Amino acid sequence: MTNDPCQREQAAAGLEQLASLVRAHSWRSEGLPALPPTQAAVLRMLAGADNGLRAQQIAARLDVSPASLSDTLKTLQAKGWIARRTDAGDRRASIVHLSKQGRALAARLKHPARGMAALLQGLDAADVGALLRVAQLLVGKAQQQGMATGLRTCLGCRFFRPFASGDAAQPHVCGFLGTPFGDAELRADCADQSPADAPLRAANRERFQLRAPP
């Protein structure tokens, strides 16, 4: 583990530059309406939820306040991109889902030639795997410091078994699927994720940070 302040400063600068790119691109993506980052994130999230999501689930995953999300949902609904239906399990709550127009827009937002996905074109599997590995560690650190909640990463999942397969090419195991996999198959947002408790997250994070199987 490096303790070089200059190296960490440069890494932090790179992250800040990428964050600025994300914010700027969400407002001025060619051929798409100008969207604040939170609105774009809600549309992408709902695109991966066939049965819709409760507002509280969306707020938790985005780590925004219910009041802030309420304003976002009102705007999206006014534009005709989302709709709400009564939750059959709780008549006091509603399920948010994409409208036909919203689904078409979300598909364009998620296109691999747009947004941050476009920056990954041309990277080989090893580089993508390295990025996914670092993303897992950074999200885990953010959760550890109370900066993020509700994110559905492998490292935060109770089914994740880092360096448990004995196979150097596919060192990790997904207990949900019962299959080994490598860094290039790590998930930053997995629909089947089941949050691990704090002790398991800490143990997995410590094991995952190793450069080689223990």
Rank of each mutant, 00 (worst) to 15 (best):
P171M: 05
M147E: 11
A130M: 05
T179R: 15
A164W: 02
Q121C: 03
P213E: 13
S70Y: 03
G140D: 04
G178F: 08
L18M: 12
L119N: 00
C157W: 03
G182V: 07
L131T: 04
R23H: 13
Q145V: 09
Q121E: 11
S194A: 15
A212C: 06
P66D: 10
L35H: 02
G89D: 11
L131V: 12
P5F: 07
A12Y: 09
L18I: 14
L186A: 07
A198G: 00
A67W: 02
R54Y: 04
A34R: 14
A78S: 14
P112A: 00
L69V: 05
G178A: 07
A135V: 05
A184V: 13
R114S: 07
T149H: 10
R187M: 15
D4R: 00
H97K: 09
R114H: 10
R84I: 00
Q101S: 14
M116R: 04
D183I: 12
D50V: 05
R28L: 06
A203N: 04
G166C: 06
Q121R: 08
R158V: 10
A88S: 11
E185C: 11
A107H: 01
Q145C: 07
A83M: 15
Q209N: 08
C190Y: 10
A191Y: 08
A78N: 08
A59Y: 07
V42G: 02
A168I: 12
L21D: 06
P66V: 13
Q56A: 12
S194R: 15
Q145E: 15
T2G: 01
L69M: 05
L62A: 06
R207S: 07
P199Q: 11
M147C: 13
G140F: 07
R207P: 03
A107C: 01
G115W: 01
A198W: 11
A88H: 10
